[in-house]
Nucleic acid binder design. Sequence first.
DNA 1: CTTCTTAAGCTCGGATGTAGAGCATATTCT
DNA 2: AGAATATGCTCTACATCCGAGCTTAAGAAG
Lengths: 370, 370
Amino acid sequence: MTTRATELLRVIHARPGVTRADAARLIGVGTGATTELVGRLGHAELLAETPAAPSGSRGRPTTALIPHPRGPLIAATSITHEQWRVDVVELGGAALATVREDLGDRTGDEVVAAVGAAVSRLRTEYGDRIRGIGIAVPGTVSRDLMLDASNLNWRNVDLAAIWPKAGIFVAGNDATLAASAESHRGAAVGASVALHLRVEAGLGGAVVDGGRVLVGALGAAGEFGHMPFGDPTVECPCGAYGCWGTAVDGSALARLLGHHQPRDPISYARRIIASTDPAPAAATATAATALGRGIAGLVNGLDPDLVTLGGLGTDLLAAAPAHIDQAYRAGLMGFRRENPPPILPSTLGDDGPLAGAAEEAWTALLTTLV
Amino acid sequence: MTTRATELLRVIHARPGVTRADAARLIGVGTGATTELVGRLGHAELLAETPAAPSGSRGRPTTALIPHPRGPLIAATSITHEQWRVDVVELGGAALATVREDLGDRTGDEVVAAVGAAVSRLRTEYGDRIRGIGIAVPGTVSRDLMLDASNLNWRNVDLAAIWPKAGIFVAGNDATLAASAESHRGAAVGASVALHLRVEAGLGGAVVDGGRVLVGALGAAGEFGHMPFGDPTVECPCGAYGCWGTAVDGSALARLLGHHQPRDPISYARRIIASTDPAPAAATATAATALGRGIAGLVNGLDPDLVTLGGLGTDLLAAAPAHIDQAYRAGLMGFRRENPPPILPSTLGDDGPLAGAAEEAWTALLTTLV
DNA sequence: CTTCTTAAGCTCGGATGTAGAGCATATTCT
DNA sequence: AGAATATGCTCTACATCCGAGCTTAAGAAG
């Protein structure tokens, strides 16, 4: 439902600390209805008011709307190839607590158990204020919450164990969720259509259209790394040939440099991209060109306002901007070349997936609060 | 706004002739509110009731809800490479009148003038009942309603002249609008995410997500023909290299067969695809393979429920289904191969763009009627 | 043909949410 | 201090919707 109450909470979430008067204008209600709304939501412990910063101009001062100190919370979780992390996030996106730990060489089920234990501890601390959980994982999540993460060699890891209770449960691919975060809190704020791409082991991302992440029919959209922009003779671990991901990630750099496939392709790639020696720089340039050419294809097809790059994409953009840009412009349709959508580094960096998990869980929770 | 009244009109539009009782159940209101709603909307000349077909089962018979005989109308317009056409479309999608004419060798401005004159005549006939217009064109429409159609050699044709009055004005690419039609009235009804591709001179299409067409930031989304799935040595008229469109349309067939680029690439391609001689059949198979491979890439990235093919895509699917299917499956990510999204022929055929123009204009109009 | 069963429509009272007018309040400007 | 300005509160009017109870129109059963 989209009641005025939900709209108001959404405004506070998007802009915590918004003044009461601005919020009322944004959702288009008069002062009478605002009094009723703010009173009701305050009484329900969903929002609170503080005296607000003085505006400096004339007129009766208004108050700032902030999350209620006993209001609902979301447990935002991310699992990366190195560590897991759980943040307790209030309305507006601020974190009240953080727990994190390196994965070590735990199995998937052990990591899920550790995360579940951390969530349980947080639930004893915050009680029923924690209304749901959002989880970002480096792999694919099926509808029945089984996780496959080929990069970690995890198969059929059951995420449901993390959150046995009723409430909000959102789980998704890290790149997809990072796209959400980037569009709500990062470099793509204000874009009507934003494309986020994240290079790690492989390449993923998502389109965010009007604030909504396009997740596809099975929740598996955004696997742009498996579009055939690459070399048709290179086989991808997915079984297809010519996947774009195989042309831009750490495996591509290793292939170009004649190295073995690295154990940790992300740290490997960071090292290569940071190197200024000629051979690594040439490999980096080749990957950057492949990245730019593919971005052009996606921009032609999807018509975003802008493109944001996360993960190793940020490194490639910093290391070889000219190669990306040249291939990008060359691949664009003629009419776009004059004013192409900018390619920007992610501003949330490695926090993107966690922030996105918080965003999507909060979005889901807000539709259930009245 | 999404009031109950708008919801009811949307239900009638999606399923004209729906029974009053079913419609009430669909929007979730009780019999009391239904009486009030139907009475109000009938009084406003937005809907009417007819005695409805007998259900055969017990109980008081209900009525069928249909568009009001003096209700609002939309002028749906399509311009193709051969002719223009204007339909007058009522709520529910039925056409009350049709005007059409071959283009001959008129210029773009002359065609727009002819369409404008036809619309004016229809407006004298139907009066203010015609509340807006939807226009499907074989090219790109900028925000200020200037049309570029490279296939027709039209540049900067001003569409605003067709509809000088206030009201709904929706203009879009024919492939994009055909996608909308296919998802509302065609082969993709019921799909949560549908991908429609239309091969004519080049290749375009659109993703429809939950009934909403993804039009992109500039309204130029869906130019999938300019994704670099093709041969990187082939230059596209758009200026880029390796565009997918150049691998599947009439120009691709002519190149494969060593023919000159045909004047009318669509009729030419229809002829080649229909031929059973070995050389044309081989060229058709090559194009079908390129089509299937690209579809796989898009399915990997966009995760639709199903894919519909219009224009020459329908012909290719009929002529070389095995080639499309083999390349499609080979290009899919492993986990999709077991149960791939089906590739279906468009059911609206050449009427798709016109039907989509009607759909999008009606969608826009329905949000303004209360 | 009459009565029963079923599905649907109508009427009315109560609850909810909102808009708008008029008044009250808190600040800055002159 | 008084004017100007912006905001908040109270109260009335109105629209919408839900649910209960009654009415209506068909098929089924006898």
